[in-house]
């Protein structure tokens, strides 16, 4: 039996309902909250500030450092052990690598910009939500950036190419008995908005070359929606104040 209707009734290219806000943490130099469906990421940016230990300093340019963490209660009931794990370390690394191409820290030698992202609730697509949130937070912090990074997961469930998979879709054989032998591919993608260059491309699962190309084409439209939301969130922070007083 093929997977015809998506589990939550969305169209193939439709993203879950999204919400974004800039400047949610007053203490931080820049911050953002980004929700997509049940996945919720909060990002805070500190810096540029002094970097210690000193051997980490780079005299050519500032260093970008990311932190990723799922909160203990963020899963589906089972407590998530807080602190670093192999998974968190990997995601922090891919976040840094996907943001670095646009962030310009050449005027901050020996300094560091810290990006902390924590997720109070998760339902797949956390690294994408984390990157989208981090991008808003970095812009809010006034860090020079060439462009925004928009990130979303695309993939294939059975024969369908879809955008923004949920946890149930990733584990379709468990939740939909009819598709017990379906193959799933989950492809988190991050894109530089203007040039459509990819800064993150991972793949988990099975997909053909044609399927991958189709999925990446779908990602262009999907990241555009993320971009519009990021733009709105950043501008709203300042337009809100205009109405008061």
């Amino acid at each position: 039996m093929v997977y015809k209707q998506r589990l939550d009734g969305r169209k193939d290219d439709e993203l879950r309902p999204m919400e974004a806000k800039a400047g949610v943490i007053p203490n931080a130099d820049g911050s953002a909250s980004f929700k997509i469906g049940k996945t919720w990421a909060i990002a805070a940016v500190y810096g540029p500030r002094e970097l210690y230990p000193r051997f980490l300093q780079d005299p050519q340019k500032g260093v970008l450092r990311c932190h990723y963490g799922m909160m203990p209660f963020s899963g589906s009931g089972e407590r998530i052990r807080p602190g670093n794990s192999r998974r968190a370390q990997e995601i922090a690394m891919v976040m840094t690598k996907s943001l670095e191409p646009v962030v310009d820290l050449s005027s901050f030698p020996n300094a560091v910009v810290d990006v902390f992202v924590d997720l109070p609730q998760t339902d797949a697509g956390t690294r994408c939500a984390a990157i989208s949130a981090a991008s808003i937070a970095l812009a809010d912090a006034g860090i020079p950036m060439k462009d925004m990074i928009c990130s979303v997961a695309v993939g294939k469930v059975d024969t369908k190419i879809v955008a923004d998979l949920t946890y149930k879709e990733e584990q379709i054989h468990e939740f939909n008995p009819e598709s017990h032998d379906a193959t799933v591919a989950d492809i988190p993608v991050a894109m530089i908005h203007n040039t459509k260059e990819l800064t993150l491309l991972q793949l988990d699962g099975d997909i053909t070359k044609e399927g991958l190309l189709q999925a990446l084409e779908l990602a262009k439209g999907a990241t555009e929606k993320i971009y519009q939301l990021q733009k709105k969130a950043l501008k709203e922070k300042f337009l809100m104040g205009e109405k008061q007083l």
């Binding site: 646009v102 020079p144 462009d147 925004m148 530089i192 733009k231 950043l234």
Partner: peptide, 8 residues
């Protein structure tokens, strides 16, 4: 106008 990084 308020602009964001990367806006033309």
């Amino acid at each position: 106008d308020i602009v964001i990084p990367g806006e033309a």
